[in-house]
Design a protein around this nucleic acid. Sequence first.
DNA 1: GCCAAAAATGACCGGCCGGTCAGAAATCAC
DNA 2: GTGATTTCTGACCGGCCGGTCATTTTTGGC
Lengths: 247, 247
Amino acid sequence: MARRPAPLSRAALIDAARVELGRRGLRGARVEDITAACGLSKGAFYLHFPSKESLFGALVRRFERALDACFKSRRTRTEAFLAEGPITPRDVEQVSPRYKLLLELEEGEDERTLEVMWEYRDVVAVLISGAQGTPFEGTLWKAVEREAARVANEFRAQQAQGICRTDVPPEVFGAMMVGTYLLLAHRLCRMRAKPDLRSWARSLQALAHQGSIPPPSTFSIPVGTKSKSAPSKARRTQTRPSPRSSP
Amino acid sequence: MARRPAPLSRAALIDAARVELGRRGLRGARVEDITAACGLSKGAFYLHFPSKESLFGALVRRFERALDACFKSRRTRTEAFLAEGPITPRDVEQVSPRYKLLLELEEGEDERTLEVMWEYRDVVAVLISGAQGTPFEGTLWKAVEREAARVANEFRAQQAQGICRTDVPPEVFGAMMVGTYLLLAHRLCRMRAKPDLRSWARSLQALAHQGSIPPPSTFSIPVGTKSKSAPSKARRTQTRPSPRSSP
DNA sequence: GCCAAAAATGACCGGCCGGTCAGAAATCAC
DNA sequence: GTGATTTCTGACCGGCCGGTCATTTTTGGC
């Protein structure tokens, strides 16, 4: 009967790799340092993983799956909420209970996304500031820009319907929402203690909410009458751009 | 009499280096590729520069000086503006002509900063996404966080004076302003044609302005009376947090 | 054309480090 | 203790690339 692997070797190597990757980047992290941190030889690394890069690739894919799960959850819950009826300009103007529910939904999803960033903060550190010139170069930045584009497109649609301010290019709005998350994510990478992510999410939502609503004069239009008289028109009114719904 | 250096060699090497650095990062950019792009030998590089890293270091210092000049200009012009009198809550509420002047000043400074980002977009690309594990690792991120802290501190002071919303932690507000710039700067690094930076600056300012003002009920306090009766109190009222005054 | 000086060349050097693999060590059933 | 199997070791290999430097080439004054 053969020798058994040390029960904790693999996990220890993964943990040590994450520490080194987060600290020195993909290129700077050395296999020898990783294995030394576990009291193992350099060659032992390759009993568990095909290469340094493929270990990192596996970590990235895990992170991406967690992030995709966040996007999916947000989409599913938002669609279910709106299936019960759209958010009207009146909801927005008066901050109706129903609108508040939507804001809370978004806030919860934002917090969830920040939780993922916290959990994978070593991987995120590499993807943000250490991936240039590596096969993973665009991974996070592409996800960031996709999300910024989604936010921008929603914002643009609302502008066309006159329920969001029109003096701001949608791209800039999207950049604001997503850029903020980016900086917060980068901060997470350097923190030892976990901050209050709920508070972060709530505050972002509050700023974006107030920052994106149209000027008060917009609501002087008899919006309430309209939404009552034309259900099909109410359909077009949809929800606000979910401006806080960034990665 | 000795041979003269080819007149354009040094400049050509700098240009080629910037292209390679922006594309592949500090580690991925190879001296051999840089020199080949200029039709020179590898050894010729070292006739002009002590090392690859020191060339990049010089570029970084030039960028930092340009950025510091932006910060200084903003500070100087804002102080000169405020030396003629503070911005009052009434200015903010009514968007007075004087307040508009301040917003325009800030907008101009923002545009100027974006111009610097555009000019040094290759260096910025490295500093944002390629500096992990190199001697330049914290360079831009530290400047980013310093600026975010400055914005946050101003915001905090205004909160204490009741002229900015109090439901948002200053750190998050700072992150929003500066994070947006970060993402925009990253976009600049990947653009071939220069975008309309004025428009970007104006839009950011507009979002931040509206997003950060206190709820309308705050202004129901007889603010005008106060500011008239107590000049020393007016001093404390100061300006709004310059929320758009990010890097 | 000659000469001196500097630019320029590119083969070479040596450090770094990911990855390899022959041999050693450990494990467990018998 | 033996034997088979697997884990583990660390010296070694080889590619990469920044930097070096002996040699070649170029330039400009005389």
